[in-house]
């Protein structure tokens, strides 16, 4: 027997059993992806249009009501999608207990970035 452990192959395959969950994560990744298709294309088109704008020009654009809404929606969808996707990547490649620390780091970073971006957009929009 060359098996390093005495646990049966079937027991190893079962391991902790099914989580009976996982579809939520997968589904949220799809929903946020669908949201990102129009939002990112809109953002890219707007940025191209503003290639030569200065600070005043950008701020004037960012203060427009639709822009503020779309930017905030973009930030929410983008960082939600990023957090979900990056978590899967970490789970794929990190196999030590470090995994949980990295996932917490990824999630908090994405949350913080989204909040910072939304507050910046609101600051620009609401500044008098």
């Amino acid at each position: 027997m060359n098996r390093p452990r005495m646990r049966s192959p079937f027991g190893s395959a079962i391991w902790l059993g099914s989580a009976k969950t996982g579809v939520e994560h997968w589904w949220a990744e799809r929903v946020s992806a669908v949201a990102l298709v129009p939002l990112t294309i809109w953002f890219l088109a707007a940025i191209i249009f503003h290639t030569r704008s200065d600070h005043a020009g950008f701020v004037a654009w960012l203060r427009e009501f639709p822009t503020t809404i779309l930017i905030i929606l973009l930030l929410i969808a983008l960082f939600h999608h990023a957090a979900l996707g990056l978590q899967v990547i970490v789970e794929d490649y990190v196999h030590s207990d470090l995994k949980f620390a990295v996932i917490v780091g990824v999630r908090l970073t994405c949350f913080a970035a989204a909040v910072a971006g939304i507050l910046a957009a609101l600051q620009i929009a609401l500044a008098s």
């Binding site: 200065d54 600070h55 005043a56 950008f58 701020v59 960012l62 930017i71 930030l75 983008l78 960082f79 990023a82 996707g85 990056l86 990547i89 994405c110 970035a113 989204a114 910072a116 971006g117 507050l119 910046a120 957009a121 600051q123 620009i124 500044a127």
Partner: peptide, 22 residues
């Protein structure tokens, strides 16, 4: 996907800079 996540952070930096002033 990883690159664009970093791009998202770049977008936030850009927005914060715009909020802070010229």
């Amino acid at each position: 996907g990883v690159v664009l996540s970093l791009g998202g952070v770049g977008l936030v930096v850009w927005l914060v800079a715009a909020a802070l002033g010229p």
